[in-house]
Design a protein around this nucleic acid. Structure first.
Lengths: 193, 193, 193, 193
DNA sequence: AATGAATGAGGGTTCATTCAT
DNA sequence: GATGAATGAACCCTCATTCAT
């Protein structure tokens, strides 16, 4: 498995650094190779093409969000509390890694539509877990029965995403994690029974 | 004034069509010129450079949203009703112009950071009007006094934006305007007193 | 006759100013038109094309050198004295008009070969007059009988031209006219009997 | 060292041929690449930009003149003889390479001022060696003590340059090297004690 | 597996010239 | 005569990808 070889992660990590520091359009393959300490050609032993590096960056890092969220869902707490922990997790991971935040919120969005569609399909796993929370909340009568789940999901993800992007564009100058409670309250109000 | 000359609008409209049909990165200046029925060089009599075309597209079209919203704010209705009309306006304008929707929700976001920052500053006018509605609602006790206005604004805009983008990515296959009521209800729940 | 109309000279004079101040490659027709206070299209009522402006600049200004030199040749003085006056005239005219000096010594030489060949043919009239001085000096036994006239002419013109160009490249920071005597002595030594 | 790689010289040589045959303004990078038998992009592995090719052409070829002249200066002969050999060398090198002569005497002079200033600074090394000969001649009392060395240098270089340019403009139809003796005599007369 | 030199397609922009008014 | 809006051809350079070693 290529993903287990050290150079695979080396290149992924190099890509995040290079993109965060240089911007999407100034992140040439040769720059990533140099940062990773490998030859340009070596990149192509581990990735099909440049787009594949970027998708993999997203995939790999998204796993953290997904894995954490899976853990949260398994906990024996209310749906509302799970929503809280989801927001908190989302904000925490990005607050701890500014490079990653810049890359996912700003830089990767400059990629072509094709790449963004692929990124979106990776996101789906995350959104499915969000749906589980919503279902749970409806079943437990915590959340309003009549809400359109798709819309609720879009509101929740849209709000989290917009909040994070604004924070990045403001150059991290306030504490993102501190916003968890208020964001949670706003969102919960929207959907609670 | 250049903006009043017919070729100015001709080029703006051509740009929207070309970008919607070919994608941001396949929208060469020569293609836009051809669609507008002018020579390549003519573009540069009306726009400083390619980026200037794109900013102007956004500026011109954003005006429609802003002007409509200004009208809504002046009406003698509750803040909640204004919020409803704002969402309805946003969805209606884009539902009537799929090309514009594709361009603003998908294609322009692929532009470089610099252009996106400029687009963001244009957006601010729109968001300021949203703030007015929030203020009004708080003053009239329709909206919860304790909400963080910045977060509320991000929730509202993030939800509208995410909803629209999802609709575009699903190729307009359902009726966006029909979602107004539910989106309004979700958002209102989040902020109402 | 077009040359007698005021706009003809207006454009010629504007061209010298624009070229001297902006350099050959930054001297667009529109800039010259603006400086001359006429519309771009008007230029083409007086000149066939851009090259024609530049040739005319050279032609018009070269006339000053040629007319002066013709006067010198008619004077009742020795060939050596005529050579002295020729050098003095050359240096004086350019020392009095730095714009013209920059244009003829530096800027016009950046033009394409075609234009330069035309400039060279204009120069021939000047060089022919130099030949007259040389003939006169040989006939009067002031100059060495055996010299190759073509070479002598190249030495004289080459030296004057190189001296002037060096002076322009040094930004006129010393007095060019003061060099007349020494240049004359050097050249005279080369050809005197 | 890039200069030692075969493609470096290949491109330099191709540039001289292309410029001589097509003229400065018709010498596109792609034409030079084709003549050199490399891809367009390969040019940029060896040269910073197009201007850098042209400067390098001049630098590389100027070295021949300079190296030969250094050899001449070291010889145990009079300053006058050194001047003779310098002229002979200058004429010989160009007479043997018509392409190079066209490029240095006609084409490169059409370059922009910036490039020509760089070319001039390369020329300085050559002119410094000429100064050495002048100094030597003055010390040995071969040359007139009172001459202005800068002017003498300008006369010598101006004459050689003008003679060569005229020869090139006459399409090499007479023997340049044969002129050595007369040019030397003219110049020597100008400066000898 | 790893290298890195070589490839070559692709596009924004300028500006001399024209011509309808 | 005079205008100036419109034209459209022309080119340097970057960089993702390949492949011989």
């Amino acid at each position: 498995m290529k993903k287990d070889k050290p150079k695979y992660r080396q290149i992924i990590d190099a890509a995040i650094i290079v993109i965060a520091e240089n911007g999407y359009h100034q992140s040439q393959v040769s720059k990533i190779a140099k940062q990773a300490g490998v030859a340009d050609g070596t990149i192509y032993l581990y990735f099909k093409n440049k787009e594949d590096i970027l998708i993999s960056v997203f995939e790999e890092k998204m796993e953290i969000f997904v894995d954490n969220l899976k853990g949260i869902i398994k906990e024996d707490i209310t749906a509302s509390e799970k929503l809280y922990k989801m927001i908190h997790n989302h904000f925490s991971v990005l607050a701890k890694n500014h490079h990653l935040a810049t890359v996912t919120q700003l830089e990767l969005r400059q990629s072509n539509l094709d790449l963004r569609l692929k990124i979106n399909s990776i996101l789906k796993n995350y959104l499915k877990l969000l749906d589980e929370i919503l279902n749970e909340g409806i079943n437990s009568k915590e959340f309003e029965n009549s809400i359109d789940k798709r819309l609720a999901r879009q509101m929740i993800f849209g709000t989290i995403d917009e909040t994070t992007t604004t924070w990045v564009m403001n150059e991290y100058k306030y504490d993102l994690v501190e916003l968890t409670e208020q964001v949670h309250r706003l969102l919960l109000n929207g959907i609670k029974a």
